[in-house]
Structures are given as C-alpha cells and as structure tokens.
Design a protein around this nucleic acid. Structure first.
Lengths: 334, 334
DNA sequence: CTGAAAGCGCTTACAG
DNA sequence: CTGAAAGCGCTTACAG
C-alpha cells in the first residue's frame, strides 16, 4: 500500500502543497471557499492523514513527552502515569513510558534516547544517580520535571508528598490512641530515595513533638526479603514496640504477612499504620488505617508543570518544590 | 542553545555528512582509520547526538510502538505493559501508552494519532467497537497484535488467557472440596469483553463436566457498584450458593467487602475463588485461592509477535490465537 | 487568495 | 575510501 502524501492530495485537488498544508492546519484566513472544498474532498477520497514525523522535523515539536518511572508495577507510579496521560491527552500529547528500575545506567540510556527522539520534555522519578546529566539538561533549558523524589543539587520543578507531615499524622494518631512505643519499618535508607529519608526524619521529629523518645532499636531498615526476620527480632525484644508505622505499601505487606504467620492480632497485639493506601485496606480484617498519597493530583500537577513549560514558554526561571498533603484514612488497625 | 547537527560535525571534522552518517551507523567497512578518529573526536567535542526524528522520516521506522490498554490502573494491564516495555527495551524500541477506557471513540482517536505519529506497530486491548478500523489496518498490512480480548471478525494475532480452562480449574477444585451449589459473579456481559463471556460459558461447561446443573439464579451479572446489593439477594435466597467464583479481581474485592460487612466466614459460610491473583492473597485471612494469569509471559509474547512482524518481515500471513495457561494458586478460601 | 522554493536533519545510491 | 546530490513529507516566508 503506497502511503498518501500531501503532494498526492495537492495533485488530486489541483492545488499546491502549500495550500493543502494551510488547509490541514486550519489556516483558512485567505482560502477561497471552493479551494477549501476541493482540498477537503481530495483528502477524503484519498484517505490522507498527515505524517506527523515530517511535521515534527520542521516544527521541532513532537507533542510527545517521556515519563521515566522507577517501576510501573508500583501502584503509586501507575496512578501518577494515569493522571499524566489524562492531562496530556487533553492537550493532544502522547507519553512514552520507561522503567528505570532504580538503575542510573538505565535511566541515562532512556533520557538520552528520549532526547534523541526529540520528545518535548521529560518527567522523571529520579534515581539520583545522574547528577551531571540532570544539570546538563537544566543548563540546556530542557523541559523536565521531577516527581516523587527530589535531587537537592538540581534546580528542577519537583512534585512531592509532604512526607514529614504524612509521618506526623501517623505518629499523632498512634499517640492519641495511647500507644507508647512506636516503631518504624523501612527498606534500606539510600541517599537517593528521598521519600524514605524524609519519612524517617519526620518520624523522629514527630516523636519529639509528642514528647516521646526516639529509640533506634525500634527503627528497622532492611531489604524487603529480610523484613519478616527482622520483624521477629524486633518483636521478641523485651522493649518491643506496641505499634508500627510502615514506610510504604511493600513494607506493610511484609508486616501483615508476619502478623498472620505468628497469629498476632491487630490492633491488640500491635497497632499498624501504613503509608500508601492499599486496595484491600477497607475490607481487610481489621480494616487498615493508612496515609494515602494524592497520586492523581500529583500526577496532574506534574504534567501541568511540564506542559506549561513546553507550551507557554513562560520562562519563569524560578523552580519550585510542590508538596502535596497526605490523606489520613482512619480505619481500625490502630 | 543551538542544536548540533550532522552538518556541524562534518564541518568540524573536515569530512562530508555522508561520512559522518556512515560513522554514526557503524558502517566502518571502507572507512579509513584516521577519518574514523576525526569523526569520533568531532562528535565528542561537539556533544553531538543524532536526531532520530530526521532519521525516522527517511527510514520510515520510528522504533516506537503504541500500546492501547483499557485502563493502566488495572493490575493485569500494568503487568502486561511492564513485560512489553522490557522486551522492547532489549530491541531499543519505545512504547507510547494510551488509556482507551473501553471507549471506542477514544480508541479510534489514539489509533489514528499513533499511526499519524508513524509508530511501527500497535498493541491493543481492543474495545471491539472499531471493526471497520481494525479491518482497515489488517488490509493495509499494518503491524498490530491484540491482547486480553479477541475480536472474532478480525484476523489479527491475539494473546489470550485460556479463560475456559481457568474457570474449569476453579470449578473442579470447588467440586473436589465438596461444594454443591457453585455461583459466579461477573460485571455485565458485554459482547466486546470476551474474557467475561468465555469465563461464563466455561462456567456452564465446567459444571456439566462435573455433573452439576447450571442454575441461572446463581449467576450474578451486575455493575461493580451494585454487586454487593445483588450478592445480598443471592445469599438470602433459600437455595443459596455455598461457593462463589469471582470473575475478576474487582469482583473479588466486592465479595470480600460484602463478607466482611455481614461478618460471614470463609470458607465455612462460603467458599471463594477469584480469577486474577491479588497482592494480598497470601496474607489475607483466610489466604485466598486464586487463578492467576501469566501476565508477564502474555505481555512478552505479545511484544515478541509484534516486533517479529515489524522487524523480520516474516510475512507469515497466518494469524493465530495464543492461549496461555492459567495458574491455580491453591490457598485456604475454599 | 495561491504557488514556487527553501529548508528541517538525516540516509543512501552512485560516481569517482 | 569519500563526497555531491537527491529525497523523506512536511512548513513557511515571500512573491505575485
């Protein structure tokens, strides 16, 4: 099947390519009514559809953006992507989705390829491992927005959860419920994964604000696979916690798993709160108190920031950190 | 910042654009060692990166494919997308992800735009609402693969779960466990959502194979929002089911919600099996018996079929339905 | 009101 | 072994 080009339409309609182009781009200002009809008819008859690649080459805009997530399998990423896609769809933009798997090398490869493909901008959940690259992009004035994680060294608009507040809400509630020894469980604290870091520091602050001591023995930081073992140690010690804050949904899963294994009871044996809402929170037994991220709002804001930057050219040099309010979903696990 | 083009590199290296192009595309066959070095140096010094859009225009390949899902928020879609992305990444392809929301109009818009953007092929979870369009694509010999759902009228490679077998595994297990009156709950049976249809017809067959009668009163087909109400009616009737098969994860959620509300007990009051594995199956109480879809294998196969079609040009005209084996995850809910 | 021409940044057959 | 030239399918300033 030979593809139909603008030249074919022009010939078929007996006009020039320029005129067809004007028509396609709806610049009817000076176009005669008859010309318009002729072109319209030719397009319909030939089933012509413009080649956007060719247009992109000339116009230097692909109406496509890249989105690099750590892992699309995480519920939070999925929700953010969905919100971005919805927003982009409104603006007739498309999104290319990439999984960097927390690997700076993969991240760099994707960023390079996306730029080579001339995407108009990039949204990234940064690994933090490509400082020089990020800085280069900023210097080139290339449109980019970070989400979920921040990179303090780089001046980029960034959309984040108010992590400290999220933890504070959890601790406040636990204290209010009378818990005395609150523990926290988190995956390893890597420097680049700022939400975890902020949640842990928020934890210490929140305890202090509630006149509780921070006991390092009640903070477990461990690979997901080993959390259940560590949890056992944590709960066997004499001064064991009476409540636990799970730093994210993956950790919450491990805690619930452990509790089922050991036939413990929530909230009697242990109060539990998780950051990140989970699908089964409301019908689990007991229903689970969680602190949800407003993922859709965050995704929308991220897309909005990027598209504004791409379209308006509102060169507001100023870059900001946008912090979103967590939502306390109070249920029965504490 | 002026962008560096191939012409700049050529000038800087004192060679022609052709030579730079040869170098970039690693066609060193006839290239002098010195020329090579000069070009390499020029590229490094200028920080040149080829414009893939320009290349695409000439080569008629964008190394990008489109993926149209019903909704990226569904876990199954997410897993399929992840597998597709991994496979594409190996081949240096990118994926544009779109949500059609089961809306044929959105689906058509996306398909048209993706083609206009010259993607090399499209993977779609078809709404079924664009027969003419699908057929046009097939006729144009445009690379396309369907996944999750089939459209019988269209000759396209399609990757599916063996839905009848999935249900049979569930029914067989329930019968084996001594359940006598097995019910099934599903969202509305729309003609285009073939998995649901196949699961219901598989349900009838499986009952027959187990010498059980199919009682239409035990089949609930209802919008998600109303399922709990219908469930109540279902379980209030004298001849109520002693076990229920949930046609997908969304339905399972409603069933579990209802059971918790009514303080019923699984599996004593009611046996439960769900199609689609769920994150909390193993640590729910009781742990939930599910029939999992091999989503990653399915996604991988889908990507493989499409890329083969795009790359090899193995014009094997023959199109096939690929059925994947469900996995019975036997746990304690029946 | 419409068309001829140049150009976006590449690739590629061909000449030498 | 390397370069000049044409062309991919558009857009756009400019001429008329």
């Amino acid at each position: 099947m030979k593809t139909i080009t603008m030249a074919d339409v022009a010939q078929h309609a007996g006009v020039s390519k320029s005129t067809v182009s004007q028509y396609v781009n709806q610049r009817y200002d000076y176009m005669g009514e008859k010309t318009k009809e002729r072109v319209e008819k030719a397009i319909a008859e030939l089933g012509y559809s413009p080649n956007i690649i060719a247009r992109s080459l000339k116009q230097k805009s692909t109406t496509t953006i890249g989105v690099i997530v750590a892992n699309i399998l995480h519920v939070f990423s999925t929700q953010v992507i969905r919100a971005i896609e919805d927003f982009c769809n409104e603006a007739n933009f498309h999104i290319i989705v990439c999984n960097a798997d927390d690997d700076p090398i993969k991240e760099k490869k994707y960023m390079d390829m996306l730029r080579a493909k001339q995407v108009d901008g990039i949204i990234v959940f940064p690994t933090g491992g490509n400082l020089a690259l990020y800085q280069q992009l900023v210097q080139d004035n290339y449109p980019i927005v970070f989400v979920d994680r921040m990179v303090p060294e780089v001046e980029v608009n960034t959309v984040l959860l108010d992590n400290e507040k999220a933890v504070r809400m959890g601790v406040d509630l636990l204290v209010e419920k009378g818990y005395q020894r609150i523990g926290m469980v988190t995956p390893p604290l890597e420097e680049s994964v700022t939400p975890r870091l902020e949640r842990v520091s928020g934890f210490k602050q929140a305890l202090k604000a509630n006149n509780q001591n921070f006991d390092p023995n009640l903070l477990v930081s461990e690979e997901i696979e080993n959390i259940r073992i560590k949890l056992d140690e944590l709960l066997q010690q004499p001064q064991r916690p009476d409540a636990i804050l799970a730093v994210n949904d993956r950790v919450l899963f491990e805690i619930l798993h452990y509790i089922k294994e050991k036939k413990l009871s929530i909230p009697d044996d242990l109060g539990v709160i998780g950051i990140d809402d989970v699908t089964f929170a409301s019908f689990y037994s007991p229903s689970l108190t969680t602190i949800a991220q407003p993922a859709f709002e965050m995704g929308k804001k991220t897309a909005e920031l990027l598209l504004n930057r791409i379209q308006n050219k509102t060169q507001e040099k100023e870059t900001k950190i946008y912090r979103f309010e967590p939502l306390l979903m109070q249920r029965d696990s504490c």
